[in-house]
Structure formats: C-alpha cells, structure tokens
Computed example of a mutant assay.
Amino acid sequence: MLNIPDTLHHWCEERRPFALATVVNVTGSTPLPPGTSLAVNAAGAVVGSISGGCVEAAVYELCVQMLADGGAPARARFGYSHDDAFAVGLTCGGEIDVLVQLIEPETQGHLSAALKAVMAGRSTALAQVVQGPLPLLGRTLHIDAEGRGTYHGTLGDERVDRSVATQASAQLRAGRTACVEVGGGGTSPQHLVVLVHVHGSRPRILIFGAIDFAAALSEAGHYLGYRVTVCDARPVFATRARFPYADDLIVEWPHRYLEHTEVDTRSAICVLTHDTKFDIPLLQRALGLPVGYVGAMGSRRTHEQRLALLRDAAVPQTQLTRLHSPIGLDLGARTPQETAISIVAEILAHTNRATGLPLSLGTGPIHRP
C-alpha cells in the first residue's frame, strides 16, 4: 500500500473511509509484486493498480461492495482463464491473492503514522496481517527506522507485536517487502502470516563529471526515482542551470567528496570524467566501497589504460572485476540521451541480476519472484 502514499495519506487526513485491496501473494509471472495496492473511497474515486489492468475492474467492484457492506476483510484469488481470454484473470499466466478490507482512518492510527512517515521521506515499515484469525486480518503495526513499534496487543497480544516488530525491522534493514510468519509455537499459539511493507530512503546515483552525458543521466536517474548527485571540481560546469534534475550539486574533487558522503549497497557510482587525474583516485575509493554498481565512461583503449593505472595504484584484482567499463549496455547509443538509457539499463540489469538480453531470447517467467 506504500505505492500510493500521497492519496491514502490525504484520505486519512480527511477521515475518509476507503476500501483497500492489496496483493498479498503471487505465483508465477505477475505484473506487480506483493504489497502493491489499489484503493477506492466512498465517492468512487480509485487510486493505484494491482495487476497492470488485468483484474482491476473486478477488484474495484469488490472494493465498492466492501464500502457498501462494511464487511470483514476477505481474500480473493485471480489467475489465468484458459477458457476465455477476456474473462477476469491474469493473461500473463500467474496468480495473485488479494486482501480487500475497509479502512476507517479514525481507528487505523498505525496506517496513518506509516503514511505520514513515507510522505516525509523517512524509512518505515508497516506490518499487515494477511492470514490468520478473522478478527486480526488486515490489522497493521507501524515500525519506524529505529525499529520502534507500539506494543499494546495491536496484532493480538504484546508478544506477537514484539515478534512482528523484530522481523519487520530486519526487512526494513534489507529494504525488502516480504511476508513473514509468526506464532504457532510456545511463545504464541496464534499463527499469523504478516506482510511487511517497506519504504526505504531513495537509492543514490552519484554522477562524477559535469558533462552533457551527465545531464542526460541525471534526468534518467531522477525519472527512475534515484536521489541524484552530480559532482565536479569545476564550478563553471557544475551549475543548477545545466543540472535541473540533480538533488545534490557538488563542487569538489570527486574522490574527496566520496570520502565523506554516505553510500550503501543500493548506490550506483558513474564516473563520466574520463580524465585520469579525476578517475584514478576516485575509482580507487569507489571500488573499495560496499556500493551496488561502479561504472566508468571511456573507450576500450581508455579502459585498458585505466586498469593499468589502477593496478599500479595497488587496487586488488577482486575490486577491479567490479568495474563496469566501458559503461552501459550495447544499445548502439551515440547521443547523451541514448547513452543515459544504456547506462541505467545496465544498472537495472546488474541490480536485478538480470541478463540484459532481449526477452524474446529467454524462457520461463518474465517477472522474477
């Protein structure tokens, strides 16, 4: 449900009841992952999507019925229809389980708190019971970035709350929305399946070198939801007019900036300067950091010269193998805009452990678990 925080937060602030449909389990190839939601308010306004269009109309009707009846939360399953391609079903061949529930903002303080945190850009997790005793189905518990929750029997009793909060905190650190199981043992007789919705801070893309290719890459990174940083030691090039899509515009020697800025395993570093006085000290630092991607622009000849200089600087071979250079996928790109697409395509493929090959050449499900 954290895929539509702005509208849900607005409805909660106005105390508007709404029906919420959430994907809680997927099997096979499906368009959208668990945690994705669609919501409908009493006026019939709809926000979000759970299947990319395949079953939206049917889920909308379930939400309208939930608003009219005010019934208990219920699960529904949608899958591919072999008999009628136009029947309600997922034409991609997978199956999804959807939990539909009525949200009364005045009694859903945990949901409101989580949405408020997301709107403020803070890392947060929202645990939602998606399988268990009917009185607990759909209940939520908000856990903040420090792992703090409210333990007053929100999900059944205090022991269950603490167990869920512990597991939700682990999912928040990993930055991954997933289902967890709690209870059913000595600590708690009630067995629950809880979907932990995770909203983390935006991953970073750090672009070094304030050139035309960097301007196009900053726009592409912004479009994909990255926090975009552009850094160059030359103030005449690193200007806001040239980089309107950069969240952070830094005038500093690249390696010095990288020494004191914060990165993590989701961060992507793109070195576009192809100037050895900038590249070598920067890549020495970048390749030793626990970041997700390091790429450098330049010809194959430049790449070989760069590797030689990095070896001379005693950069270990294990680190050199992390370098994506020449940067980007082979798309035949020539313009800055085309090159930006090739770079972000490589970042996405590397991040998702995908091949980067045409889907027409592959087999099996298109959407991976």
Rank of each mutant, 00 (worst) to 15 (best):
G209T: 13
S218V: 08
L206F: 06
G209Y: 12
L195E: 03
R256H: 11
D161P: 07
E158A: 15
A220E: 03
G186S: 14
H197N: 09
Y245F: 14
S218C: 03
V196S: 08
G221R: 13
T239K: 15
Y226M: 03
A246Y: 12
T265I: 15
T276C: 07
P189N: 03
T273D: 03
H274A: 03
V198C: 10
G149Y: 00
D232I: 11
R176W: 09
Y245P: 06
E259I: 06
R266D: 02
A168D: 03
Y223P: 01
D157L: 02
V251N: 14
P203T: 01
L249E: 06
V230Y: 14
L206K: 13
R176P: 06
V182C: 05
G149H: 09
G186L: 14
V251C: 08
A210N: 01
C179K: 11
G156R: 01
A241V: 08
H191E: 09
C270H: 04
A178Q: 12
E252H: 14
V271C: 15
L192K: 01
G156Y: 07
A214Q: 07
Q171T: 15
H197T: 00
C231G: 13
V182M: 03
Q171S: 15
G153F: 08
W253H: 12
L195T: 05
W253C: 12
H191R: 15
R204I: 00
C270S: 06
L249M: 13
P254V: 07
L155M: 09
E259P: 04
A238M: 12
V180K: 06
E146M: 13
V228R: 09
Q167S: 05
L249Q: 01
Q167E: 07
T154H: 14
A238K: 09
R242A: 02
R173G: 11
I207S: 01
V193G: 12
A215G: 05
T154R: 15
G153Y: 02
D275T: 11
A233Y: 04
D247A: 14
A246M: 02
A168E: 01
S267I: 00
Q171P: 07
A268Y: 08
S169C: 14
V196E: 04
R148D: 12
E219N: 10
S218G: 03
G153A: 02
V193L: 09
P235K: 10
S169A: 15
I205C: 08
L249N: 05
R148A: 14
D248M: 01
R176S: 11
V182I: 08
R148P: 12
P244E: 00
V236G: 10
H191Y: 11
V164A: 12
I205W: 02
D275M: 14
Q190L: 06
I250M: 12
P203N: 02
A168F: 11
L258V: 04
L224T: 13
Q190D: 12
T265Q: 15
V263L: 11
D157M: 00
D157Q: 05
L224M: 05
L217M: 10
R256Q: 09
L224H: 13
A178E: 01
